[in-house]
Design a protein around this nucleic acid. Structure first.
Length: 282
DNA sequence: CAACCCACCTGACTGC
DNA sequence: TGCAGTCAGGTGGGTT
């Protein structure tokens, strides 16, 4: 569900209500998610701590907590395919546990809940000083919306690679946070087919693709992310995104290309669908 | 190391 | 109405 724009939207919505609040209590219902939740460490380290910052690295949410003079801790949250963070005000009388709610941080008058039906998501903890060497962070490529990411980096990083463009973007090793939706959309806007070998992108095509990745991610953030028909993705206040209405190819197999009216095609590799317009994309 | 395949899990949807 | 099959936003581990 959640790619960079969805995670960024969640980050912003949570930041508004949770920043500066103090953790009163933590309840962990089950620990067997993608990685075991370190329940004991969380219980030891976080009660009484204040949320000092909420950042994002790729698709990872980084909650920075500080308590007294002890070293700052980071709680790392990954949404996997179906994860949600939801902030709810207790004054509203809303304290019942939701289905698939696994973790709840009680913060002043707010509850921060982690809900994840498929349990591909994760909650982890590390010292701020070791964040960059954490397994969830250390192999991430550059932030696509930063100046570090450009056509040159993409060109240099893709020579001699036998992978398809879409699959290369999904690995996140060169550029972080791009998932299946936005990889497909960026390929469309760049005029390249997602299944083309990435090594055969010309320098100008890399220039174009890097630019379109930035554009599509920014537009999607502006639209609050993509909420597909199952309604799975919502932000930290429970609001849906609307970027799904601006998809040009993703999930549109068999429909008319919005640019040239050809039929949008779907190809499958590795059990994942890629979408493209055979006329607009070469 | 790179490329590939797969498992991990639940729920929604499709077709019989 | 039910039931089997298919599919889904991610990603790391194992195997060639």
């Amino acid at each position: 569900m959640p790619e960079l724009p969805e995670v960024e939207t969640v980050r912003r919505s949570l930041e508004i209500v949770a920043l500066g609040r103090k953790v009163r209590e933590i309840v962990i219902k089950r620990t067997d998610l993608r990685y075991p939740i370190p329940a004991e460490r969380i219980q030891t380290d976080l009660p009484g701590a204040t949320l000092m910052g909420l950042e994002r690295r790729g698709k990872v949410l980084v909650f920075r907590f500080k308590r007294g003079r002890s070293a700052e801790r980071c709680l790392l949250g990954h949404l996997g395919m179906s994860g949600r963070f939801l902030a709810t005000e207790r004054a509203a009388g809303n304290t019942a546990w939701l289905k698939h709610e696994h973790v709840r941080l009680t913060m002043d008058t707010w509850d921060l809940r982690f809900i994840d039906p498929r349990r591909f998501g994760s909650i982890e903890l590390c010292l701020s000083s070791s964040l960059t060497s954490h397994p969830r962070v250390k192999n991430l490529g550059v932030e696509p919306l930063s100046n570090e990411f450009d056509g040159d980096l993409l060109f240099q990083g893709t020579r001699r690679k036998q992978v398809r463009i879409r699959d290369f973007l999904l690995t996140g090793n060169l550029v972080a946070g791009v998932g299946n939706i936005y990889a497909n959309e960026a390929c469309f806007h760049s005029g390249v087919r997602p299944q083309r070998p990435v090594s055969r992108l010309s320098r100008p095509e890399c220039q174009r693709l890097s630019m379109e990745i930035k554009k599509v991610l920014e537009s999607a953030i502006d639209a609050g992310g993509s909420t597909l028909s199952d309604g799975g993705y919502v932000d930290g206040s429970g609001n849906s995104g609307w970027f799904q209405f601006s998809h040009w190819v993703y999930n549109r197999a068999g429909e008319a290309c919005k640019r040239c009216d050809s039929t949008v095609k779907k190809v499958k590799d590795l059990k994942r669908s890629a979408f493209y317009c055979p006329k607009c994309q070469k």
